Simulated assay, not measured.
Amino acid sequence: MVSAGSRLRRLAPLALPTAWGAVAVVWKFGCPLARQPGLPMRIATSVVFLTVGTGLVLGVRRGLARELARVRAVADATQQVLLRPPPARLDGLSLGAGQLSASRGASVGGDLYEAVATPYGVRIVVGDVRGHGLAALGAVVAVLGSFREAAHDEPELGGVLRRLERALERHLRERARDEHPARSGVEPEHPVAEEFVTLLLLEVAADGRLSVLNCGHPGPYRIGRRVERLPLGEPLPPLGVLPLPAVLAPYAGSRLLPGETMVLYTDGAEEARDHRGRFFALDDALVRLAGEAPAALVRRLHAALLDHTGGRLADDIALLVVRNDRVRVPAQPAEPGLRRPRPAPSSHC
Rank of each mutant, 00 (worst) to 15 (best):
Val2Thr: 15
Leu8Phe: 05
Pro17Arg: 02
Val25Thr: 11
Arg35Gln: 11
Arg35Gly: 08
Arg42Val: 13
Phe49His: 02
Thr51Phe: 09
Thr54Phe: 13
Gly55Ser: 05
Leu64Ser: 13
Ala65Lys: 13
Ala69Ser: 15
Thr78Ala: 14
Leu82Cys: 10
Ser94Phe: 14
Gly105Met: 05
Gly105Glu: 06
Ser107Asn: 14
Gly109Thr: 06
Gly110His: 02
Ile124Gly: 03
Asp128Cys: 06
Ala135Phe: 02
Ala139Glu: 05
Leu144Gln: 07
Pro155Asp: 04
Val160His: 09
Ala167Glu: 07
Glu169Pro: 02
Arg170Gln: 14
Arg170Asp: 12
His171Leu: 11
Ala176His: 10
Ala182Trp: 12
Arg183Gln: 11
Val197Glu: 01
Leu200Glu: 08
Leu202Glu: 08
Ala205His: 10
Arg209Cys: 09
Ser211Leu: 08
Pro231Gly: 04
Val241Phe: 10
Val247His: 12
Gly253Asp: 00
Ser254Cys: 12
Leu257Gln: 11
Met262Glu: 01
Met262Val: 06
Leu264Val: 06
Glu271Tyr: 05
Asp274Trp: 08
Ala281Val: 03
Asp284Cys: 12
Ala285Met: 10
Ala293Trp: 08
Ala295Gly: 14
Ala296Leu: 15
Arg299Trp: 05
Leu301Asn: 04
Leu305Met: 01
Leu319Cys: 09
Leu319Ile: 12
Glu335Met: 14
Pro341Cys: 03
Ala344Asp: 11
Ser346Phe: 15
Ser347Lys: 14
His348Asp: 15
